[in-house]
Simulated scan of single mutants.
Amino acid sequence: MRLIFLGPPGAGKGTQATRLVKKHGIPQLSTGDMLRAAVAAETPIGLQAKAVMESGGLVSDEIVIGIVADRIEEPDAAKGFILDGFPRTVAQAEALDKMLAEKELKLDLVLELQVDQTALVDRIVKRAEEARANGEPVRKDDDPEIFRQRLDAYNRDTAIVAPYYRERGQLSAIDGMQSIEAVAAQIDAALDACVVTG
């Protein structure tokens, strides 16, 4: 089962991906974690990434795809994987398709958690207010200004990835405004349908 989770920050991707990892025994792959692991392991592609990062540059799509390609060869990904936070652009989606095709693999499903972004911002503002009221530190991700910037970046760069997969018939839209349990049930139904038709 090879899946991608799409959706804006705060949509609940992490919560649902963690549940699927436990249920199906497949790893959740975050490009940030994979990048750090490749650099630490000093793999050939990790050394390339390290050189770019040390020079203050952004790691290229080619390097990121190389890191994903290496990671999905590991034994724990043999039954599949969940990509979270990748691809972020259509160019990355195309490169991912090409790399998977070269390995004679394909994506099973792309799950897009659709949410009301105004409600998301309200939720983050409320969470930050509650933390302050309880004398707790506000998580960096829960700073409303930082969150709005992340949301803007998502809308500018990543929101266009969903139509790419929709055109290929690989996208399943999930109503992310429901309860965690209801979202989970809708995801499970989409996966069941995918297994039947796929």
Rank of each mutant, 00 (worst) to 15 (best):
L6M: 12
G7V: 01
R19V: 10
L20P: 06
L20H: 02
V21K: 01
K22N: 11
G25D: 09
I26W: 04
P27N: 15
S30T: 13
A38R: 14
A40T: 12
A41P: 09
G46K: 05
A51V: 15
A51G: 07
A51Q: 15
E54A: 02
E54K: 00
G57K: 05
V68D: 11
A69C: 08
R71P: 03
I72K: 12
D76C: 01
A78M: 05
I82H: 00
L83H: 08
A93G: 05
E94S: 11
A95Q: 09
D97M: 11
A101N: 06
A101W: 09
A101F: 04
K106E: 14
L107F: 06
D108A: 01
L113P: 02
L113T: 04
D116F: 01
L120V: 05
D122I: 01
V125F: 06
E130P: 07
A131C: 14
A133N: 10
N134C: 04
E136M: 00
P137C: 03
V138Y: 13
K140F: 04
D141G: 01
P144S: 03
I146S: 11
R150Y: 04
R156I: 05
A159Y: 00
E167W: 00
E167H: 04
R168V: 10
L171D: 12
A173H: 08
D175E: 12
D175K: 00
G176S: 05
G176V: 04
I180E: 11
A182R: 02
V183E: 09
A185Q: 13
A189W: 01
A190N: 14
L191T: 05
A193M: 13
T197G: 14
G198Q: 08
G198N: 11
G198R: 13
